[in-house]
C-alpha cells in the first residue's frame, strides 16, 4: 500500500508561485474576480504564505508554499456531518463534492486553512470553456474544495501501468505543482517506501512539519532554508 507524501525544499523554493498557477490550470479552479477577492473568497488549493518577522532592517522573512497536508489524523474529517470528506487507504484526504452540504465545519477545523468554499457557481466566458481540464470535475456552488494531490492523475497513471502490465512507478504519478516547479523544490512519492526520494528527504536534519504539536501528522514535509 502506498502512502503518498510531498516534500518541499524551502532552500530551493524561490517563491515564484508556479505551483499556484499550475494548480489553477490543472484543477479547474474558479476565477474569483476583484470584488469577491476583496471579500476573501479566493480559492487556492496551494498558496504561497508569507511569514515576515522582525523589524527593519533585521527581518526574517519566509515564503511557504502550502498545499493540503493530507494529515494522518485530519481535523476536517471528524467534523464533517455527512461523510463527504474522508481519508482513503493511501492516505489521500478526499472530498466527494456531491455529498458536501456546504456547512464549512471543515474549513474552520483545518488548522492549515487549506479549504475553500465556492460562493458561486464558477463561470468562465464561453471563449474559455473548452480549455478546462477534462480530467477534473467542475465544482458547483456551495461546496468546499481543496488540494487532492491531483488524485485524478493517480487514477490515470494506475490504469496506464495496469494496461502495460507493470507496477506503478514513482515517476508515473506526480501532481501538477510538482511537475511545474522550476527550481525543483518539490518532491512527491511514496512515504511507505523507505528508499523513495521523499522518504529519504523526510529523514533529513532540515525536515519539519507545520504545526506538528497538533498531532495531525501532515504528509507534507518541509525542508528548512540554510545549511
Amino acid at each position: 500500500m502506498h502512502k503518498w507524501g510531498m516534500v518541499i525544499d524551502l532552500d530551493r523554493c524561490s517563491g515564484c508561485q508556479t505551483c499556484m498557477a499550475a494548480c489553477h490550470a490543472e484543477n479547474n479552479i474558479a476565477i474569483i474576480g476583484p470584488e469577491e477577492s476583496a471579500m476573501g473568497r479566493t480559492i487556492h488549493w496551494i498558496e504561497l504564505l508569507p511569514f515576515i518577522e522582525g523589524e527593519y532592517p533585521h527581518i526574517k522573512a519566509r515564503l511557504l508554499p502550502r498545499p493540503c497536508m493530507h494529515c494522518e489524523h485530519p481535523a476536517c474529517i471528524k467534523v464533517c456531518p455527512v461523510g463527504a470528506t474522508y481519508a482513503n487507504e493511501e492516505g489521500i484526504v478526499g472530498i466527494v463534492y456531491s455529498r458536501c452540504i456546504g456547512c464549512r465545519y471543515c474549513t474552520t477545523a483545518c488548522p492549515y486553512t487549506v479549504r475553500s468554499f465556492n460562493w458561486y457557481k464558477p463561470q468562465w466566458p464561453k471563449e474559455m470553456q473548452g480549455s478546462l481540464n477534462r480530467d477534473v470535475s467542475i465544482r458547483g456552488k456551495g461546496v468546499v474544495e481543496k488540494c487532492s494531490f491531483c488524485h485524478h492523475r493517480l487514477l490515470k497513471a494506475r490504469e496506464k501501468a495496469k494496461v502495460e502490465k507493470r507496477e506503478l512507478l514513482s515517476e508515473d504519478y506526480i501532481p501538477a505543482c510538482v511537475q511545474a516547479c522550476p527550481s525543483n523544490a518539490m518532491y512527491f512519492g511514496d512515504l511507505n517506501d523507505p528508499f523513495s526520494t521523499v522518504s529519504i528527504l523526510s529523514r533529513e536534519r532540515r525536515a519539519f512539519k507545520l504545526l506538528e504539536d497538533l498531532g495531525t501528522e501532515p504528509k507534507v514535509i518541509y525542508l528548512s532554508e540554510g545549511m
Binding site: Y86, N88, E89, I92, G94, Y97, S98, S148, H152, L155
Partner: peptide, 8 residues
C-alpha cells in the same frame, strides 16, 4: 470501492 476511485 474507494470514493476517490470514481469521484474526482
Amino acid at each position: 470501492n474507494d470514493c476517490l476511485a470514481c469521484h474526482v
